[in-house]
């Protein structure tokens, strides 16, 4: 899933302090699962903002809505008939949802309510960690199912570096060394020999480096 974190309330207040009618829009997908921008977080933020403005002596109306997804036309359309009532929207969706909202409702200011962090997994309750950077040419088949691009601090394709210490990465004792994980799993899979195959220089043109990306599937287009 896409993992996000709540933005500090101060920052949000700064964005929205000059508006009178606000819509706080959550998203029912990833940000709900990582407890950053679902219905619950919408409620908390709305309540906090209401109290803040009240305390400041400002009259601000704040409505709440949580859409099934903000990265899909279908669900974003659900608020079309009332979007004009609002001076601004605070979207608690990931950066994709915020932008899709802004594209769709071109004349309404839209602000982000979360910091979108990465694509990751829920390691345990309350702990999420990165697993993929969407490089566009997945090499997991050659790295024992562990991604060195997203999980090695130096994205080494031929690791580990000389800083790998007791299974941890040189940059932090709290971070597993991706290459230690790869080696452990290669052994488990009885494929340790494969370690010595040199991973060729990567084509990064399908990654961020190649410019904004697009996937077009003629077979599923209408």
């Amino acid at each position: 899933m896409i993992v996000a974190e709540k933005k500090p309330i101060e920052e949000i207040i700064d964005y929205v302090k000059d508006f009178q009618k606000l819509l706080i829009a959550g998203c029912n997908e990833c940000v709900t699962v990582c407890e950053a921008g679902g219905k619950k977080e919408v409620g908390i933020l709305a309540s906090a903002l209401r109290m803040y403005f009240m305390n400041e002596g400002k009259k601000v109306d704040i409505d709440e809505v949580t859409l099934e997804r903000q990265c899909d036309h279908e669900y974003l359309e659900e608020i079309r008939d009332r979007i004009d009532q609002y001076d601004a929207v605070l979207s608690l969706a990931c950066g994709v949802g915020v932008q899709f909202m802004a594209e769709k409702y071109f004349s309404t200011p839209v602000f982000p309510g979360v910091n979108t962090c990465f694509m990751g997994a829920a390691e345990e309750r309350g702990v999420w960690s990165e697993r993929c950077q969407g490089c566009g040419q997945c090499i997991l088949g050659k790295t024992a199912g562990i991604c060195p691009i997203s999980r090695c601090a130096k994205r080494l394709l031929n690791g580990p570096c000389g800083g790998s210490t007791k299974g941890k990465c040189e940059i932090s004792k709290d971070l597993d060394c991706a290459w230690q994980l790869i080696i452990d799993r290669l052994k488990e899979l009885d494929r340790f020999d494969e370690y010595e195959q040199i991973m060729p220089i990567k084509d990064w043109s399908t990654e961020r480096a190649g410019g904004p990306r697009k996937v077009v599937r003629e077979d599923v287009r209408l």
């Binding site: 309330i9 101060e10 908390i44 109290m51 803040y52 305390n55 400041e56």
Partner: peptide, 8 residues
């Protein structure tokens, strides 16, 4: 924390 931030 929230109550502190919003001045309550």
């Amino acid at each position: 924390m929230i109550l502190d931030t919003i001045g309550i």
